[in-house]
Design a protein around this nucleic acid. Structure first.
Length: 490
RNA sequence: CGGGGUGUAGCGCAGUCCGGUUAGCGUACCUGGUUUGGGACCAGGUGGUCGCAGGUUCGAAUCCUGCCACCCCGACCA
């Protein structure tokens, strides 16, 4: 049997790319830097969207939609914001094409030049805050809690499916508040929503933390993030939540009257997660046999493979399987019965493993005689033969167990790849081996830059739960009061 | 935008240095048969602007010139 995909340990990038292709998740498109998300991949994204959207609604947010195009002048209203995004913007300069005079095809009509160029949104703060100006007059209009599901474009030099593409799908929350405290609470609350989603749905442990000023979102006063460890020991920023202070309110003149009848600028937040989470999901759990999906996000949770020699046997097996399927579906479990004759059972086993289906049932004539079924779990690759009686409850428990087991496995991996390091020599040695490094840092951008320059490691975050601990910066020896997380990152 | 590499059937590749039958292999696909508890086997078959445009030549996948696309490594980044 030929290996379906290259080994994870030999070449992580190749493994990642081949896995995405073989598991039918996505592919590079003919359009520069853009990807096509295929139906199977998209169905996973849809499950993520639904779960996240529910969590946003539970925390009082509503969905809305704002324009794809941003007038150039909007973008330049917040100085650090435009500086952060200027280098990666797609710009619309014309609005019409025409036939070339030499018959060579269509060309951009030079007569149809826009007076003001439009930027394809790299993020929507500017267009949204220009709208909020009209929506907010009094403290009674606050808080304004809006989320948008959209696509954005960032003209990246180099792309990688799901992790960094020129166009990507995401959600971006944009809220406005009467006080700084309230906005900060919102920033923390949404970070917590992301962390809970990552841990409870994606089965992916994350570190909640704050970015250093260097790594902050362009235009934010504070950026909180969740950082996850991939199986090659590199870090992936999985979500961010920004406290914007009054920066955008001031740039777009969004003022309100307080209870005391005083005019004040509103306080803002923004927060987002993207299709990058798909990349995180793949890299956090999958193995050399393919995708490993947490049951809560698996488009197919249970696949049933009948093993038969002829139509008559298939009919007998189907009769036995149908009631089980009905009961599973009643419990909200997604089941697929693959009775196609196109492929042999062995082929099907491998195929569903590649696609990460958490539980597989196989049933043949032998089982029919014994009143049993073979149950295989994707995460551990183990099989057991159990009685058909009570199989539904068994599967329900098994799905829960798989969800827990993948989380615990990822957590253990992360714990065993976190290192406390107290000298720069040890730091340099460890960073080559991968993993997260907890080390003291003097708090300056200069030190952060120098370490990045020399080791390619960045400060992923200052953990929110980092205990106070006196120490000395590994680079300068200056005093430090807590450890921060260093790692190489995607 | 720098450094390296690759474009030949849906996918993966050989052939290119040293020009010469009808461009080949694996896989996938189609037909028939045997199979079916871990990616089956046999037989037959479909499918090609050899990345594009020029040039050299009796003759170009192969040599020359220009262009384009993609991948990997950097800079940039969710």
């Amino acid at each position: 049997m030929a290996k379906a995909i290259p080994s994870r340990s030999e070449n992580y990038s190749e493994w990642y790319n081949e896995l995405i292709k073989k598991a039918d998740l996505a592919e590079n498109s003919a359009v520069r830097g853009c990807m096509v998300i295929k139906p199977y991949g998209f169905s996973i994204w849809e499950k993520m969207q639904r779960a996240l959207d529910d969590m946003f609604k539970e925390t009082g947010h509503s969905n809305a939609y704002f324009p794809l195009f941003i007038p150039k002048s909007f973008l330049s209203k917040e100085a650090s914001h435009v500086e952060g995004f200027a280098k990666e913007c797609a710009v619309v300069t014309h609005y019409r094409l025409k036939n070339a005079e030499d018959g060579s095809g269509v060309i951009v009509d030079p007569e149809a030049k826009l007076e003001e160029e439009l930027i394809v949104r790299p993020t929507s703060e500017t267009v949204i805050w220009s709208t909020y100006r009209n929506w907010i007059q009094s403290y009674r209009d606050l808080p304004l809690l809006i989320n948008q599901w959209a696509n954005v474009v960032r003209w990246e030099m180099r792309t990688r499916i799901f992790l960094r593409t020129a166009e990507f799908l995401w959600q971006e929350g944009h809220t406005a508040h009467a006080t700084a405290d309230e906005a900060m609470d919102e920033t923390r609350q949404m970070l917590d929503v992301y962390a809970r989603f990552a841990e409870e749905w994606m089965a992916m442990p994350v570190i909640r933390g704050a970015k250093t000023p260097n790594e902050r979102f362009a235009g934010a006063e504070d950026t909180l993030c969740i950082e996850a460890m991939m199986q090659d020991g590199k870090a992936l920023q999985a979500g961010t939540s920004h406290f914007l202070g009054q920066n955008f309110a001031k740039a777009f003149e969004v003022q309100f009257l307080t209870k005391e009848n005083k005019l004040d600028y509103v306080w803002g937040t923004s927060w987002g997660v993207s299709t990058r989470l798909m990349g995180a999901l793949i890299m956090a759990h999958s193995d050399d046999d393919g995708l490993v999906l947490p049951p809560k996000l698996a488009p197919i949770q249970v696949v049933i493979v009948p093993i038969f020699k002829n139509e008559e046997q298939l009919a007998q097996l189907s009769a036995k399987v149908k009631p089980v399927m009905q009961e599973l579906r009643k419990l909200g479990i997604t089941v697929k019965f693959d009775d196609s004759d196109a492929n042999k059972p062995g082929w099907k086993f491998a195929e569903y493993e590649l696609r990460g289906v958490p539980v597989r049932l196989a049933m043949g004539m032998r089982d029919l005689e014994n009143g049993t079924v073979e149950v295989a779990r994707r995460d551990l690759k183990t099989k057991e033969t159990v009685a058909l009686d009570g199989i539904v409850g068994h599967i329900q428990n098994l799905l829960d167990d798989i969800q827990q087991t993948i989380y615990q496995k990822a957590l253990q991996f992360r714990e065993s790849n976190m290192f406390r390091v107290d000298s720069y020599d040890a730091f340099k040695e460890q960073i080559e081996k991968g993993g997260f490094i907890l080390a003291h840092w003097d708090g300056t951008s200069e030190t952060e830059e120098a370490i990045k320059e020399e080791t390619k490691a960045t400060i992923r975050c200052i953990p929110l739960d980092a205990p106070e601990e006196e120490g000395q910066c590994i680079y300068t020896g200056k005093p430090s009061s807590r450890r921060v997380v260093f790692a190489r990152a995607y």
